[in-house]
Amino acid sequence: MDTFVQQLINGLTIGSIYALIALGYTMVYGILRLINFAHGDIYMVGAYAGFLLATQVFNSEPSIFAFVIVLLGSMLIAAIIGMAIERFAYRPVRKYSRMTTLITAIGMSLFIEYLFVFIFSGTPRSFPQLIPNDNYTIFGNATISTSQLLIFVVSILLMIALQYIIFYTKTGKAMRAVSFNLNSAKLMGINTNFVIAFTFALGSALAAAGGVLTAQYNPKIEPLMGIITGLKAFVAAVLGGIGNIPGAVLGGLLIGAAETLVVGYGSNIGIPSTYRDAVAFAILILVLLIRPAGLLGSNVQEKV
């Protein structure tokens, strides 16, 4: 039982990160019907922004304050980069077919990855510890570390903030309107370009938060770290129902828990731990076969 609880904690930790990234995929899809492939790389950009802030700009003793500054700083930087990508790569091709934008997104993703390889080289960098790491025993033998707690607390806070922005602010209302119908929203006097840019900023900031939180938990960052994590977050978004915000969170947690339990218990039923990634994608295929719209993705009204 201890082991099961421990595995669940492990799984929900990475699941929370997937959820944070999946939110960005799902919001952009909700508004533009675009799979933003560069989104996984924004997660990486966020980690590097945090790394530069923590080592070059704000090099201080570990403290909660240092962590908050680095987290907010990298979210801001990523938001700006996300908006820039939208403005210079996606907006010019938005009027063409959806396939054009999709291919632009793939190109953007490769561009960011190899730009970072060029600038920082592929060497893994170690992210400084911003908060002293401790372990707390919570259930029998099951432990949780400070960095894991941080992941839970910060992602829950961010998700509450996101929910507030979408349902209780004017911009949020505009986002929901645009996701219903972009052209009608434009006719109603909504500045759709602003709303789209804002959505990219929100999604990118969440991904960057995921990047910094992961780097606290696992202090190794490298330019291609966003590929697999981004793909799994995308699977999480599809699993929950792409375009659906609670679905993205649910999907992220499920994928995280599923792959951890495969490693933990798969060997008992003949699935070696190497198949952890295969499981995420097998789930994607199953969901697409059985429920093409995802777990929560029926005709939900509040698509964003």
């Binding site: 082991t3 421990q6 595995q7 492990n10 799984g11 930790t13 990475i14 992961t214 696992n218 190794k220 490298e222 291609l224 770290m225 697999i228 994590t229 792959e259 951890t260 339990l261 490693v263 933990g264 060997s267 070696p272 731990s273 190497t274 952890r276 990634d277």
Partner: peptide
């Protein structure tokens, strides 16, 4: 005996086991 793949980020599942 447990395994991982290069570039994996999380090893706690295997270690817990």
């Amino acid at each position: 005996k447990q395994t991982y793949a290069q570039k994996d980020q999380d090893f706690k599942a295997q270690l817990t086991q």
